[in-house]
Design a binder for these strands. Structure first.
Length: 858
RNA sequence: GCCCCUGUGGCGGAAUUGGUAGACGCGACAGACUCAAAAUCUGUUUCCCGCAAGGGAGUGCCUGUUCGAGUCAGGCCAGGGGCACCA
């Protein structure tokens, strides 16, 4: 019995594919194109199992589509700018560029071990000046198109490290490295005007039919269109003028009669103005600013307010004045940064009102309630109903009351109907070194100026140090010193770099013509875009995908592209999980440190101390529940790793990596090998078909083979890889169990094995290629078209129907396919077990579903 | 706090989209081969009663719609994810 040597064979075919340049493509208008793209990796050091899953799925699609005759573009590159490179520089003294390029080299070699059908000639890295130079050109063009502007915005500021922190670097309100309480600070930053496309980005979601509904919903919520009103409250005691009004946004103008206060965000201009002359207010504002900027923190913090002493005039009730608070739950980033509170019909407002003793006036009466007795206790009423206690609105339904309130406000000049979006413009300035420099020069005389085209790219200086807090670009002795392109006077470069999401917002376009002199080659993008199938993690469902959609529109607006949506199809794969292990002292253990006993318990491999097994969680370095793909590939081969990734769990769901599962996959690869290599003699005996000499068993096998071919194709089209795998197992079982007797049978066996190998090819490409050669074929299997099932062989002559009595299964009957209803009914009623279950009663009704079921109702 | 997802044997999952629940794989058990082990092959494997034939229960829980519900509706319970400077 021979053994399949995965390592040797995989090396062999990887070399042969590379030498023949099997996967390099170019534009060919005579052929239909298919662009498959997996989210490109961040070069963190080594590939992890999440990459293996992502790129396996993408490679199956690429290989399948290639076999279906498409001209397939399948590129790979590196999302190479980012914070971890700077952390490495600070911790280990290695330059971010060196760290990044070394990681890329390692990871490229690892990806090549996977046998991915990539066009490596198109490789790009976003940290390469050849890439970011083009990005700077796009920035300048977008600036000229009015899609870039500058404004003040809040950031998390670490006063010790003198740096801006990401939300994830703020832990319990303190900097992760320094431990210092963080502050909210305002910085002048660059923004992309993504809100210019709010409506378009929202509306176009309806047409992205090959996107998961879940992702579309998340984007819809993110854009967050809401209709409502802006209301201008007159501030008491201020002379008429531009600052005498407080403008709020509300989605519930119908509840205006229930208003009992107004609240400002801590960083609202009016809050700042009050804080200036009032130390208590200033302290409260500072307290709010310590909360951080994440929505979760703000929404879950205890509601707190500061009574400013100011009051505003109710627009409909001359005798009512509302107190104005500064409140920690009002976001400056949404609406106008100020609200009016109607405690009876908003839970946050209610919590706030109870805490500060404000009145709670119900103004919407639920359908079944009585106006005289309806009260609000601990829960605000947010449902439908009719207005009451509301003057001219009384009796109107919520929607009618909203409209009437807006009309009246507009007539009085106190407000208007407006549409608000939750979506905010995209702040892209980062006070970091390892990113794309923002190509702007700040001139004391002329203001900010884009860097002229002939001075691009603005490259990062190599000679930077990370030995003191702050942004190395700002510290650099002379990098920022330059002259103004307008007046020629002394000026300074912008020392901020772009958010790394900018890099990944257009890379799919760059892949179409990775070495073009400009950002894109128009003919290339016109041919290849949009990406037909994009594949990546759900964690990018909102930001990355929304930014890429925005960029595509921005590039269409600046004349670079002819499409408005980047990704026609999207697939989001689940995470790769693994059990977690902890020793008695609470330390996390790597799987290879743990020995598992037959009873399911675990011990430390060296000390034999007992180990606690935790549930499977996403593989992560911090919990040490990681398995190194390279180790798996060197033990079992890439095909085994790929096959296991595709087996069992549906690709959109989280999967658990287990040793037993990998071994099962490995056993199957060996079994396939034997199925072919052990049958070679018989196969050569079956080289010529002998029509008319097939045994019934052989006929049956052919049906199974062709049904599997048809079903597998459908499964791959629909990303149901786990089902395709199960079908392939079944087919291998049938072929293995087939005891052929003569040449005709052997011919059927040969046909079956040929087809089996071709079905397996996208998933285990090396093994398939080797078996294809073993079966006597000359050319690469990679060039072989996808097999077609014989339609005559995939339909059955007979159908098995279940027979139910009152919905309970009592028998099955076998009938010719599409048998008449009468025939099915008669056959069902003739069954003894059915008669027994009917217990002598007559059938009141018999339901017959063709080829499926007969249900007798008594 | 807001938004979203998931729940089927010991485990991963399948179920023609409202029509035979548990395909396929893993694990376990039994047998064959072997001096023995590994590998391989064959069989059994949702639970309960029964020697069997057969019967009963069963898709997180409760209610409903239907001839028929894992699938649809309403209400719960449990676990997980996202929330704008991680990528």
């Amino acid at each position: 019995m021979s053994r399949y040597n995965a390592k040797e064979t995989e090396e062999k075919w990887q070399k042969l594919w590379a030498e023949a340049d099997c996967f390099a493509v170019h534009e060919d208008p005579s052929r239909e194109k298919y662009y498959v793209l997996e989210m490109f990796p961040y070069p963190s050091g080594k590939i992890h199992m999440g990459h293996v899953r992502n790129y396996t799925i993408g490679d199956v699609v690429a290989r399948y589509k290639r076999a279906k005759g498409f001209n397939v573009l399948h590129p790979m590159g590196w999302d190479a700018f980012g914070l971890p490179a700077e952390n490495a520089a600070m911790e280990r003294g290695v330059h971010p560029a060196q760290w990044t390029y070394e990681n890329i080299a390692t990871m490229r070699a690892q990806l090549k071990l996977m046998g991915l059908s990539l066009d490596w000639s198109r490789e790009i890295a976003t940290c390469h000046p050849g890439y970011y130079a083009q990005q700077q050109r796009l920035f300048v063009d977008m600036m000229q198109a009015g899609l870039v502007y500058r404004k003040e915005s809040s950031v998390n500021w670490d006063p010790v490290d003198q740096t801006v922190l990401a939300n994830e670097q703020v832990i319990d309100g303190k900097g992760w490295r320094s431990g210092a309480p963080i502050e909210r600070r305002k910085l002048s930053q660059w923004f992309f005007r993504i809100t210019a496309f709010s409506d378009e980005l929202l509306a176009a979601l309806d047409e992205l039919e090959r996107w998961p509904e879940k992702v579309r919903l998340m984007q819809r919520n993110w854009i967050g269109r809401s209709e409502g009103a802006t209301i201008h409250f007159r501030i008491d005691g201020r002379p008429a003028g531009q600052d005498d009004r407080l403008t709020v946004f509300t989605t519930r103008p119908d509840t205006l009669f229930g208003a009992s206060f107004c609240a400002l965000a801590a960083n609202h201009p009016l809050s700042a103005e009050i804080a200036e002359g009032n130390p208590a207010a200033a302290a409260f504002v500072a307290e709010c600013n310590r909360l951080g900027t994440s929505e979760e923190v703000i929404e879950t913090a205890e509601k707190q307010g500061f009574d400013t002493g100011l009051t505003v005039q109710h627009p409909f009730l001359p005798e009512v004045k509302l107190p104005v608070y500064i409140a920690n739950f009002v976001l400056m980033e949404y609406g106008t940064g100020a609200i009016f509170g109607c405690p009876a019909h908003d839970q946050r407002d209610l919590d706030f009102a109870r805490k500060y003793g404000l009145s709670v006036i119900p103004v919407v009466l639920p359908p079944e309630a009585e106006a005289a007795t309806f009260e609000i206790a601990d829960e605000a009423y947010t449902g439908e109903g009719r207005a009451f206690n509301s003057g001219f609105l009384d009796g109107l339904a919520v929607d009618e009351a909203k409209r009437a309130a807006i009309d009246k406000l507009a007539a009085q000049g106190d407000g208007e109907g407006t549409v608000q979006y939750r979506l905010r413009d995209w702040g892209i300035s980062r006070q970091r070194y390892w990113g794309c420099p923002i190509p702007v020069i700040h001139c004391p005389a002329c203001g900010p100026q884009p860097v002229p085209a002939d001075q691009l790219p603005v490259t990062l200086p190599d000679d930077v140090t990370f030995d003191r807090p702050g942004n190395p670009l700002a510290h650099h002795p002379n990098w920022k010193k330059t002259t103004c392109p307008g007046c020629g006077g002394a000026a300074e470069r912008d020392t901020d770099t772009m958010d790394t999401f900018v890099d990944s917002a257009w890379y799919f376009a760059r892949f179409c013509s990775p070495r073009a002199a400009g950002p894109v080659d128009r003919a290339a993008v016109d041919y290849w875009l949009p990406v037909d199938q994009y594949i990546g993690g759900i964690e990018h469902a909102i930001l990355h995908l929304l930014y890429a959609r925005f960029f595509t529109r921005a590039l269409a607006a600046t004349g670079y592209l002819g499409v408005k949506e980047p990704f026609a199809g999207l697939f989001t794969q689940g995470m790769v999980c693994h059990e977690t292990y902890r020793s008695a002292d609470g330390r996390w253990l790597f799987p290879e440190e743990v020995e598992k006993a037959a009873d399911g318990s675990a011990r430390h491999a060296d000390s034999q101390a007992p180990v606690a097994i935790g549930r499977a969680e996403k593989m992560s370095k911090s919990k040490r529940n990681v398995v190194d793909p390279e180790a798996i590939i060197s033990t079992y081969g890439a095909d085994t790793a790929r096959w296991f990734m595709l087996s069992d769990s549906p690709p959109e769901r989280d999967m658990e990596w287990t040793d037993a599962g990998v071994e099962g996959a490995w056993r199957f690869s060996q079994r396939l090998w034997r199925l072919v290599s052990d049958n070679l003699e018989r196969l050569s005996a079956g080289a010529t078909p002998l029509p008319g000499r097939l045994s019934p068993a052989a006929e049956e096998l052919r049906r199974t083979v062709h049904k599997t071919v048809a079903a597998c194709g459908e499964d791959l089209e629909q990303f149901r890889f786990n089902r395709a795998v199960a079908r392939i197992y079944e087919l291998a079982n049938s072929l293995g169990a087939f005891k052929g007797l003569d040449a005709g049978d052997y011919w059927v066996l040969r046909e079956g094995l040929d087809l089996l190998v071709r079905l397996v090819a996208p998933m285990m490409p090396h093994l398939a290629e080797e078996l294809w050669q073993l079966l006597g074929h000359g050319d690469f299997l990679v060039y072989e078209p996808w097999p077609e099932a014989d339609p005559a062989l995939i339909s059955d002559a007979q159908a098995t129907l279940a027979v139910q009595v009152n919905g309970k299964k009592r028998a099955t009957i076998t009938l010719p396919v599409d048998a008449a209803e009468d025939e099915a009914r008669a056959a069902a009623l003739a069954e003894p077990s059915v008669q027994r279950a009917m217990d002598g009663k007559t059938a009141r009704k018999v339901i017959v579903v063709r080829n499926r079921i007969v249900n007798v109702v008594v």
